[in-house]
Design a protein around this nucleic acid. Sequence first.
DNA 1: ATCCTTGTTAGGAATCATTCTTATATAGCA
DNA 2: TGCTATATAAGAATGATTCCTAACAAGGAT
Lengths: 162, 162
Amino acid sequence: MIISQNDIRTRFKAQGLKVTPQRAAIYKALAETTSHPTAEALFQQVAKDYPMISPNTVYYTLSTLKNVGLVKEVNYWHDRTRFDANVTPHHHLICLDCRAIFDIEDRSLNQIRQKAKIPKDFQVLSHQVEFYGYCSSCQKAQARQPSSSSRHSHIQSTRRKP
Amino acid sequence: MIISQNDIRTRFKAQGLKVTPQRAAIYKALAETTSHPTAEALFQQVAKDYPMISPNTVYYTLSTLKNVGLVKEVNYWHDRTRFDANVTPHHHLICLDCRAIFDIEDRSLNQIRQKAKIPKDFQVLSHQVEFYGYCSSCQKAQARQPSSSSRHSHIQSTRRKP
DNA sequence: ATCCTTGTTAGGAATCATTCTTATATAGCA
DNA sequence: TGCTATATAAGAATGATTCCTAACAAGGAT
């Protein structure tokens, strides 16, 4: 999904944010992928066009964008935080092997709040559903090599084990 | 929920784990609370009876218990990991203010997998639902003091801001 | 009951994503 | 064009967790 500089400008202005080249580039990189990248992956991506950018700026920018609601964080692995510019209600498929995160758009999942048995004294504002399992690539890889794992391409975590 | 040494022994043996006093104490502390404590909170608790225990042992033990399926991790905040000895399928209420985590037992939420629109090539093994909002204590606190937050008692995170 | 083997524990050092600090630069308004 | 507040870059600091290693102990075998 391509996003124009004008769209970015409009969204930033609507939140009272200054429109700087670095900030726009970070948001653009995130908005144009569905891979739920880490801050470091975004840094790598943006550094192609802005070689002098610091990781710090990426962290600061993501924090700012999160605070105004333009990005969301996800962190299913107690691992590096991953980011998502899709802030509409949606849910996730999470591969237990390669750790890829896929979006699910299923309106019916947005309705479960009405039916769930939630204590009356808890005020619910939002909810989220995660499905855990194996993506098609990892299923095929497992069929081939039942032992090893995480060898095909997706954005992955580097550090820490499952 | 009190758990006997015999139950602990049985569960450990069933997973081929040695039954050591430290390990039993850690599991007991976790199994007897619903507060989803951090590793450090468990360390503090167990240290009352085992003053020489090291944080390391708590981490190692929790990792071991997780690997055999006796405990689960949750990490909604990209913060310290929190643990749960309730490994049956259940879902969570999460307070955005004090960060308390409450269990929901609602069988109907276990059924949503059948109805959700999930790509056929993704093999789902489990799923989980989280509801975000404000617990009753925080609602009251906000009514009193609309500005500040997180002043009432629950197990909290110490570091990093929301 | 004692010995052995192997998994467990304690302690200290190391890791590394993230945050903090500070000085410089720049967006955007007057 | 100049001002002011905010953003950026660079480096240092933080802190939960992991790594490493030596001493220890559970529990099966003798």
